[in-house]
Write a protein that binds this DNA or RNA. Structure first.
Lengths: 195, 195
DNA sequence: GTCTATAACTCGATAGAC
DNA sequence: GTCTATCGAGTTATAGAC
């Protein structure tokens, strides 16, 4: 399953053949099909793994970097920047690929992809709630978390296509500019109540 | 080629078989291969079509809707909202799908996808320049255009996966909030120089 | 639980008549 | 330029011995 996860990530689901998974992992056909009845079941197991490991792999390392809640959101995004860089833009978000490839083909896969996105989005939303009055009170944290996820996925898509960090960097810089303005607004409101 | 374009859009490149294109279009194998030496060449022709038809299909209708430059940007995005809705979230941006699916598999396709993104991005960038002092002078129009593209692609990806307009709407609403703040800042700067 | 061999099928692409 | 027939390779999945 680890081999399958890596190959699905590198090449997508359809483009990865069972034969290749068997060859890379040194497993034989009969053994794989003893545990996973179909190739799709193997993918579902991989998607479960991503849900189970989001915090360990993505959120916790970012949270450990800084005590600032907003800073933690950008630390998460910085993790993706780093990942794009070390893979030379060959790999991005493991879920985003599968989202567009598989949503129309398998309802079970689509639902597990939604589960992954919701998992990620809720983690970011929690950080945004943790930010408290560093953000204006009337800002919709839920929608903002969706926005952050969308900006990340869009930026990763563009940088993978361009084979350049520039689009991702530009997107994150604009997102940062937005958060700076939100923070400034929250700050001026706080000062006003201080008077 | 029209049939191929629709099928590639609906199901992706790999998932669309030549046999299906032939069946749907009523064309015979020999005829297709007389014009396109490979399936990939057929895709490249489709991608050329998208470059050639961006303005006619996407930009011009949005420009016709309003004289406000920023409004035109959001009219373009609204076109994608409408498209998501009428296809019941089954189809999004034709290029975004192919970007993630094909970037690793064919350098020629990747380059044509980049061409499509650049085409789109430049159109948006022009609108942002047209906005003149409705945006703060120090805002990087180029990066902002990339941001708009990324937000659109990310929002489309999420809405297709969730089978709901909500993520796209939330993303566009947050983007709108950002533009509103930029416009407010530009406005206060203009007023200051008026004094 | 794991092995090898292969069934059953679909794929992109081609040959050669017309 | 278009037709039909088909090649050869690759696909997922299974059968049946161990």
């Amino acid at each position: 399953m680890d081999t399958a996860r890596e190959l699905f990530l590198q090449k997508g689901f359809e483009a990865t053949s069972i034969a290749e998974i068997l060859r890379e992992s040194g497993v034989n056909s009969g053994s794989l099909y003893y545990f996973f009845k179909t190739k799709e079941e193997l993918l579902l197991a991989v998607l479960d793994w991503y849900v189970a490991n989001l915090y360990r792999e993505v959120i916790d390392p970012a949270v450990a970097q800084t005590k600032d809640a907003i800073g933690r959101v950008f630390a998460v995004l910085d993790g993706y920047r780093e990942y794009l860089t070390i893979t030379e833009f060959r790999q991005g978000c493991p879920i985003g690929n599968l989202a567009l490839e598989m949503s129309e083909k398998s309802e079970a896969v689509r639902e597990k992809v939604v589960l992954n996105f919701e998992n990620w989005r809720k983690a970011i939303r929690q950080l945004l709630f943790d930010a408290g009055d560093l953000l204006p009170a009337d800002v919709d944290r839920d929608a903002l978390a969706t926005f952050v996820l969308g900006v990340m996925e869009g930026g990763v898509m563009l940088s993978r296509t361009y084979r350049s960090l520039a689009p991702f960097q530009a997107s994150i810089a604009m997102l940062r500019a937005h958060f700076d303005r939100l923070a400034a607004e929250a700050n001026s409101t706080r000062n006003r109540t201080d008077c």
